[in-house]
Design a protein around this nucleic acid. Sequence first.
DNA 1: ACCCAATCTTGACACTGTCAGGATCGTAAT
DNA 2: ATTACGATCCTGACAGTGTCAAGATTGGGT
Lengths: 239, 239
Amino acid sequence: MPAGLDDVKIEFDTVKMTVHTKIGVDQMERAAMKGGETSKAGYHHGDLREALLVAAEEELAEKGVEGFTLRGCAKRAGVSHAAPAHHFKDADGLLTALAAVGFTRFTTAMTARQSAAPVNSRERLVALGLGYIDFAISEPALFRLMFASGRPDFNDPELQQVAMNSLGQLIQGVSAVRGSAAQGDKAAMLDVAAAWSMVHGIADLALSGRMKFMDEPGLAGDPDATYRNLIERILPRME
Amino acid sequence: MPAGLDDVKIEFDTVKMTVHTKIGVDQMERAAMKGGETSKAGYHHGDLREALLVAAEEELAEKGVEGFTLRGCAKRAGVSHAAPAHHFKDADGLLTALAAVGFTRFTTAMTARQSAAPVNSRERLVALGLGYIDFAISEPALFRLMFASGRPDFNDPELQQVAMNSLGQLIQGVSAVRGSAAQGDKAAMLDVAAAWSMVHGIADLALSGRMKFMDEPGLAGDPDATYRNLIERILPRME
DNA sequence: ACCCAATCTTGACACTGTCAGGATCGTAAT
DNA sequence: ATTACGATCCTGACAGTGTCAAGATTGGGT
């Protein structure tokens, strides 16, 4: 993400202001263009593709997957409603790219928890699961987009890549607990499926507010402790 | 669901045919009206509310949650685009009612599996989980609507009721395994959360095609056996 | 027989995604 | 340096959507 692009968040109320603010955007772009960016920055807007991605993430976080709007993203980025078509085939194309950045962020959320855990394979696997749940709760709309929307195109090579990376991280975590590579081993893959299902189930139920049956008076405690208790139940059968 | 209403599924290609087919519908209604229905059947269409629900279920199954359309439901039911407003406040209102019928069907899917299982509390709990997964796979769009869409209004009393019934069934299944009522007991509720999370995770991952990493050459077997293996992993800690 | 309220239709509005055509700008070739 | 060109962006349009308002239609209670 190019430096300075965060400053571009401007509220539009009338269409009349478009030209006005677009000048401001260009100024920002010119200022940010000093650090050589990797992507094909340049041209009119600067790097509209990146700007649209951050706009889309805002839009998604505010309106949810159901209320997401391509025109809304364009307005947030300060461009016309048809501009996104030059960078993304579809509205679904933009959502596909957004899901891809979601998966990379997803991976970092898991590694973040992992690297803060004791150097113990079991503890690290539990931490991975807690990172999984962290992400789901802190970015619910993005999580829904990635796992329960059907809008992103998972045939897209980039998305497929980052999504496989997430799964690979999980497989590696299970392999570490088992002491051998899980890939190809039936029992090991069942362990992977078990870990993934449990953690994903916790995340999805918590995210949709369906875990609140645990929030009764003397029942609840630290949510993290609860999740840990649940995750640990899948460890015994692994070795 | 009134008898005979299933015959009302008529395909519309042009709007011109509306009057034509609507007569057919009325005939069906009149024929079906002999058995006294519970709902406020009568008036023009017969029982448009029920007809809209079956139309909505078709629409949802074909187009998915994302492609669901209120006008499409109206066309399927053979009425004008604004007719549904007299029976459901919103498009979300229709989806709320549809989610309610989904939950009752969900419950019956679980009890169906349960009653075909050995009279063993553990076996019955596993069967309940398999019924959960059955439903998710056989009616994916409905399942997504119920668990991962945000469109149904869960403050609606009817929906809240049937949704709680499903949860109650799960709590009862766990209670049977434990030998005592789970309600209010902290450890028991953790067992419930574990069972629910595991089964829900399996269902959601399988439904979205993300379990296909298990479908490698010598790896896979009967999906049901795989799911059973996973579900059984949460049993040991219960007593 | 009449009236009324529930039911349904028609028409309209704002909004959406997408396409076509024209304007604008940076860059490469001349 | 100028010109041509292709990438980028805008304006305008179209079909489709949800929702509201107002008028037609129908059946049951009086």
